[in-house]
């Protein structure tokens, strides 16, 4: 790694002051797992890193709201989310997803904020959080704003965040009546990055889908919802035909890109097949 300066401010305000909207050479560092990789490969050579480790409890808490929603601080480590009883109660799909997310050592260090700000298209949590309808809370010099997760990432390693804005927390609304699951589909080894990440969250009653949120990652340039597949389900009875139509709609509408994991055509096949399977899993009550 090339030399850089490391600042360890003790408050959010100080941290924000050390970042400059016009200077990409200064960045926040949380767990550092993603940044270290980029710095070691020479992809990123910062002049200054601003550590968020000492910003205090504001960024490290997990709080359940009265309505059953939950808020997770940006500096909470993935391992702590995985073990949190509160998170498991509010959205068990998160803990399930984390089991096969990276590895134990990465989860022991990586933070939720770093995870979302990193914006690698192959990441597992963004589609899950999109399906859950989550938002990030962001603080900058101008104050605070909320951004839906699906609006956060604009491209490969690019977000809507200004260089002097920081994620402080992620809010997940109550999931009353909903079931969710995540399919991590790898095309090579089991520990590979996914060829396709597919998250579904469904509210169904009496064999009819009231509302479905379907989000895709890895196969597309950014994680996103698949509105036509969602529409193919809304208000429809749960039948093989319905699921097949949703699968087809998803495969057709997703702006798929080819990479090491497969061609566009093959990933469309994976989307069609795995969406149906994921829907079956949640609708048959075998919620994960």
């Amino acid at each position: 790694m090339s030399p850089f300066a490391l600042e360890e401010p003790a408050s959010l305000a100080e941290a924000l002051a050390l970042l400059d909207p016009d200077d990409p050479g200064a960045r926040a560092i949380a767990g550092g797992t993603a940044l270290m990789l980029m710095m070691k490969s020479g992809l990123y050579r910062p002049q200054r890193l601003v550590s968020l480790r000492r910003l205090g409890p504001a960024l490290t808490g997990i709080h359940t709201a009265a309505d059953g929603g939950i808020e997770i601080g940006a500096m909470v480590r993935l391992a702590d989310i995985e073990r949190s009883g509160k998170v498991r109660a509010a959205a068990p799909v998160i803990a399930e997803t984390l089991l096969t997310h990276s590895n134990v050592r990465v989860r022991n260090v990586a933070t939720l904020g770093g995870n979302l700000a990193h914006a690698d298209p192959h990441m597992d949590l963004p589609p899950v959080l999109i399906a859950l309808g989550a938002t990030v809370r962001v603080t900058g010099p101008a104050g605070e704003r909320s951004i839906a997760i699906e609006d956060l990432v604009t491209g490969y390693l690019e977000t809507v965040l200004a260089n002097n804005e920081l994620i402080t927390a992620v809010s997940i609304p109550p999931q009353t009546g909903r079931r969710a699951t995540y399919a991590k589909v790898t095309a090579r080894t089991a520990d590979d990055w996914p060829a396709l990440g597919l998250a579904v969250s469904v509210h169904a009653e009496d064999g009819v889908v009231r509302d479905a949120r379907i989000a895709i990652g890895a196969a597309t340039e950014t994680a996103r919802r698949l509105p036509q597949a969602e529409a193919a389900l809304a208000g429809r009875a749960v039948t093989d035909t319905t699921l097949r139509e949703a699968g087809r709609a998803a495969a057709a509408e997703a702006p798929v890109v080819a990479d090491h994991h497969g061609s566009v055509a093959y990933k469309r096949v994976l989307i069609e097949v795995h969406l149906q399977r994921a829907l079956r899993r949640v609708l048959d009550g075998a919620a994960r």
Binding site: R188, A190, D191
Partner: peptide
């Protein structure tokens, strides 16, 4: 190893 995948324990 991120893109050249060798077998791990789950394979």
């Amino acid at each position: 190893f991120a893109e050249y995948k060798i077998p791990g324990i789950r394979d």
